[in-house]
Each structure stands twice: as structure tokens, then as C-alpha cells.
């Protein structure tokens, strides 16, 4: 699908999405923060685990602290939208600054000497590891959204068949009878759920940058580059 056609069908851009949430006041801002955390908490934890700063604390606590510190800032998303960066890379940049701040704070508290003498070495490339974690995170979020959509539309069996085939890797012929259908019918039912999953996935990826092309984002993640 071309970018132009995608824009035709899904006119909501990342900027629209953020502005829409922000215009809803504190509740909209809470929703926005929740959506950002659902997608990016895990990649940031993976990134953190790949740095020399692991001694600063538990990954979950550090990332929660980062979100609490940065997402509360009124201009955080406005600054991102003019940066030209993918959102995950913007968050990683901000996260690095946050880690530096933590470093300084610990130094002031004079508690880091013992740990600081033996820094943990970086293993591999934390940015690439974060991109791979982002791929997992975005697929997980798309699965959650598609599952909710299927439940809402009373397509529970369609969703279960989709999971058995595409998530667990089972052949239709091996489990279709569990649902009282034959394999071709199971494939048709799975396709319905797959459509929901695809729509959720592409919608999430289209929010990764102001002019994001979901196909290009997917190819980038599959190639492991993400840059």
C-alpha cells in the first residue's frame, strides 16, 4: 500500500492523535501516557539493561521514574514532533538524559562510590536491543487491541483460531475440530481476526513518526536496523 493511500484511509496522524488526547484535559493526558508506557516501557527497560548504568536501580523502577519525570512535562510531545525522530528514538534520547540526571543525583548523595568503581560493561548495542524489544512491544500491544476489538464484536472464536495458528504456530487441520469447523472455515475465521490485528499494528506504527509509513517501519524492524 502506498503512503498516499494509507493517508487516504487512515487520516489520523501521530500529531492528530496526540492533540486529540491532549485536548481532553487531564484524562486525555493520562490516556496518552498510558498508551506511551504500554508501547515503550519494555524497550526502555531493555535499553537500560544494555547500559553501564544498571547499578542505578531495578529496570522497572528506573523506567517508571523516567516516565513520571518526563511525561508530566507539557512540552514533551511538542518537542518530539519538531525533532524529526521516531518516537522510540526520541524517548531513548530523553531516557539517556534522565540517566545522567540520576547519576549526578547519586553522586551528590555520595552513595555511588562503591558501585561506581565497578561499572557494568555495555553488552552489544543497547539501541538495537531496544529496537528489537520495541518490535515485541508493538506486536504485543497490537495483539491486545485486536483481542479487545474481537471481543467487542463477538468474534471470540475467530480470535482464538487466529492465536492458535499465528501465535502458537498450530496447523488449522490440527485444531479446527475443537471449534466445530473444518480447516478452510478456520482459515477464513482467522483471516477476520488477522484483519483486526493488521489494522491495529499498522495504526500503532503510523504513530511512530509524523510521516511514518507502516510498511517502511515494519521492514526496518524486520531488518533489525530501526534507524
Amino acid at each position: 500500500m502506498s503512503n498516499a493511500r494509507q493517508a487516504d484511509v487512515f487520516p489520523v496522524t501521530m500529531t492528530d492523535w496526540i492533540h486529540e488526547r491532549m485536548s481532553l484535559g487531564p484524562e486525555g493526558r493520562r490516556q496518552l501516557n498510558q498508551e506511551i508506557m504500554a508501547r515503550y516501557a519494555w524497550p526502555l527497560q531493555v535499553y537500560f539493561m544494555g547500559t553501564r548504568d544498571r547499578w542505578l536501580g531495578e529496570p522497572t523502577d528506573i523506567v517508571q521514574g523516567f516516565f513520571a519525570s518526563r511525561l508530566a512535562k507539557g512540552d514533551f510531545f511538542a518537542n518530539w514532533s519538531v525533532s524529526g525522530l521516531r518516537l522510540r528514538h526520541w524517548l531513548i534520547n530523553a531516557f539517556c538524559f534522565y540517566l545522567k540526571e540520576l547519576h549526578r543525583a547519586r553522586r551528590k548523595e555520595a552513595r555511588e562510590v562503591a558501585q561506581g568503581d565497578e561499572p557494568v560493561s555495555a553488552e552489544g548495542n543497547p539501541s538495537k536491543a531496544a529496537d528489537r524489544a520495541f518490535a515485541v512491544s508493538i506486536v504485543r500491544e497490537a495483539l491486545r487491541q485486536a483481542q479487545a476489538q474481537c471481543e467487542k464484536e463477538k468474534l471470540g472464536a475467530h480470535w482464538d483460531i487466529f492465536l492458535r495458528h499465528f501465535y502458537k504456530g498450530e496447523a488449522y487441520a490440527d485444531f479446527a475440530a475443537d471449534f466445530g469447523v473444518d480447516a478452510p472455515r478456520a482459515a477464513v475465521m482467522a483471516r477476520t481476526a488477522r484483519t483486526k490485528f493488521n489494522a491495529a499494528l499498522r495504526d500503532l506504527l503510523s504513530r511512530e513518526a509524523p510521516d511514518a509509513d507502516p510498511d517502511a517501519e515494519i521492514l526496518s524492524l524486520l531488518e533489525g536496523g530501526g534507524s
Binding site: 515485541v136 506486536v139 504485543r140 495483539l143 499465528f166 501465535y167 499494528l201 507502516p214 524486520l222
Partner: peptide, 17 residues
């Protein structure tokens, strides 16, 4: 939810998109 999703499965599902 979907905490057991590993990287290999995620990339396979990503390709569907």
C-alpha cells in the same frame, strides 16, 4: 498479557502487517 511473546514470534506476526 501476551507476556510470553518471544522475539521470533513477534517478528513473524510483524511480517503479517
Amino acid at each position: 498479557s501476551f507476556a510470553d511473546l518471544n522475539e521470533r514470534s513477534a517478528l513473524r506476526l510483524l511480517r503479517l502487517g
